[in-house]
Design a protein around this nucleic acid. Structure first.
Length: 204
DNA sequence: CGCTCGATATTCT
DNA sequence: GAATATCGAGCGA
């Protein structure tokens, strides 16, 4: 029996959830050529995004069609399209007192279904497969059709399991934003090389 | 290796 | 019209 992370885990302050998700396993269940397949990776980089009080968050402007998952039930997938090319995946998480929040998953260390992930990315280099939010959604076949999916159920197409304990977790300012850069709400496992280029530069 | 640029949805100004 | 929770191609050093 494998543990799927439950709603209680996500019903805590978003930054705490973001930190605790490092080391957990993101699982994508899909059907390829009539066969049920499983893709997974250990989460090695996350970022927390809050509500009105977080000027870097999509939720800072209040509820819109795009960010509605951030205001809904915790433990749901928030998938959005960005920069004209890429998808990013978050899981909604927040303290019960807060109106909105989500954790952006920024990098994975590939675990299961690596051959299919390589095929999805048209890329053979293991270290480039899921080292970045746009890369990991592509390698795992995550698109906005999964927006709103309940990630606390192991029969969902996308969910998170207990993984391993990272040796160490570092926090730094978030990447690719211009507002609220003082918040150190990015969490990474610095022992993993499966991280974005920008991350590595920052850690060094 | 580092820099610039294109892709172009959603939202903001 | 401009900015954005990004990535990879193309180019020059």
């Amino acid at each position: 029996m494998i543990d799927c992370i439950d709603k209680e885990f996500y019903s805590r302050p978003t930054a705490v959830v973001a930190r605790d998700l490092v080391g957990m396993k993101l699982v994508r269940s899909l059907v390829v050529d009539g066969l049920k397949s499983r893709l997974s990776g250990i989460i090695v980089e996350t970022e927390a995004y809050g509500g009105r009080d977080d000027q870097a968050s999509h939720a800072r402007v209040g509820l819109t069609p795009r960010n509605s998952v951030m205001f809904g039930q915790v433990g749901r997938a928030y998938v959005y399209f960005t920069y004209g090319n890429h998808f990013c995946v978050n899981v909604s998480a927040r303290s019960p007192k807060q109106p909105a929040g989500a954790v952006l998953i920024r990098a994975l260390e590939p675990a299961e279904g690596i051959a299919l992930m390589k095929s999805n990315r048209n890329q053979d280099d293991l270290y480039s497969l899921a080292s970045g939010p746009g890369r990991l959604t592509r390698s795992m076949g995550i698109t906005p059709t999964l927006n709103g999916v309940d990630m606390t159920r192991s029969d969902s197409e996308l969910f998170i399991e207990i993984g391993r304990s990272p040796r160490r977790i570092i926090s730094t300012p978030r990447i690719g934003i211009t507002r609220a850069i003082e918040k150190r709400w990015r969490f990474i496992d610095p022992s993993s090389i499966h991280v974005s280029r920008k991350t590595r530069i920052n850690v060094r």
